[in-house]
Design a protein around this nucleic acid. Sequence first.
RNA 1: GCCGCGUUGGUCAAUCGGUUAAGACGCAUCCCUUUCACGGAUGAAUGACGAGUUCGACUCUCGUACGCGGUACCA
Length: 506
Amino acid sequence: MSKKVRVRFAPSPTGGLHLGGVRTVLYNYLFAKHHGGDFILRIEDTDQARYVEGAEQYIIDCLNWCGLQPDEGPHVGGPYAPYRQSERKLNYRQYANQLVEQGHAYYAFDTTQELDEMRVTYKTPENPQPQYNFLIRENMRNSLTLGKIETARLIREGTPYVIRIKMPHNEEIHFTDMIRGKVTFNSSLVDDKVLLKADGMPTYHLAVVVDDYLMKITHAFRGEEWLPSAPVHILLWQYLGWQADMPEWAHLPLILKPDGHGKLSKRDGDRLGFPVFAMDWLDPKTGELTTGFKEKGFLPEAFVNMLAMLGWNDGSEQELFSLKELVEKFSIDRVHKGGAKFDFEKAKWFNHEWIKNSFNATLASMLTDFWPDRKITNKPLLEKMIGLVKDRCFTLNDFWEQGSFFLQAPINYDLSPIRAKWNEEKTVFFNAFIEVIPMVEPFDAPTLEAAFKTVAAEKNIKAGELQLPFRIMLVGGKFGPPVFDIAATIGQAQTMERILYALAQL
RNA sequence: GCCGCGUUGGUCAAUCGGUUAAGACGCAUCCCUUUCACGGAUGAAUGACGAGUUCGACUCUCGUACGCGGUACCA
């Protein structure tokens, strides 16, 4: 019997959840669910310096919005609790000590200052960034150079120390990545990474391995930026004697900035005017607010759909997928190796498609949530309005711009396009038309249009010349769905009222 | 510098040795529409470069170039 699939998403609560992060979760989730497995959320909050209050809840909120609910996690519990690294502290030291006893790791007493000096001393044009490696560790203050007695003394005296992995000299380390195939590294080129920090917290390297083992993770997905540290993790799995349980790895391609090159960052969004976070993120330290896709008026389904297609497709021409369909069709071998540039125009297109395919009633309740300050009491009217304007809305925001005049009389009228050509005949026409409106039965678009044309013919004016004025009277500008649809939707009273108001202005 | 990973139109991308190299976004033109859009149609635009393997290479191999990532007591 094959073991059950268990994948985890392990963010560090240091700020907002950006596109790359959400896509990593998504692929984790899709893979787990596709194979009938569990999706686990683990919080990696060992980085005290960058830990941000509230970021964990924010991550959970984002996952909820996207519909990617974890099966296990700090807020839902599970058999391997706790799911926060900070609450698992004791475990890590135990394993780090084990590695030291086995000779795969050692104590290092070098101060920050000493490390800085080392980096300056050994810096050459050929080696601009010297590493704490098999060569240099011979010249540093660690248990390898100091000897047993001195090491024991320093520890007894409470000298701060870290535990570093002892990378072997000139060994081939290779592993199979589910996306990239076989990847090979030479151990001499990897430095002696710190495993346990002076404060007793593990670094990411120790923590992922220990946590993945203890939580029985079977598949590990992470960004491509982690590929260079994979050999450290592979070795740790071996040294700890857990090789048989090592998860399968998948290093996901990066999401790149639309212009130029490089990883997409928060700054790019600010600079180019689009969100890079799933939801609004208010940084409590700086007070800076970064807008999210949710608040920009994106449907979660569209957001997820768009992200899924940035680096994966099912090989067919289909582009629109629900989360359920994505789960059914996802396959890891179809994930791309190369990074993809983010394109906000395409993202909006996805949202537009999802808006068009959503029911009016669904959109109506979304909009009432989206506009908490705009008291919308007339739900049937809202739904009718949505039906008429949704084809032209790319985000939830657009609905107000495109359809607010259905819900309330326009505040600003731009009469300039008709003012120049205005004349007495037109005033006469509209006065006559108002008389007719109460008699139009039923008050629907075709009947009203017929009445409009009849009056125009009686008054000897071309109906075409009257349509633009009529539109502006109703909506305040040159936009919106067909005029008679608008009139029929807002009703007789509103139609007359708005004509009278505009007539007074003219 | 070193190591790793990449490279099909402007962007997302299909192709798993043989096609006129799909499709989508965006762009352009036309149609629809006496508003603005949506929509429909058409079009321009692609295999980084150089060798090799092969009857045949975008596809396999090698090299070059370029890009990205890493090179922290950050993840």
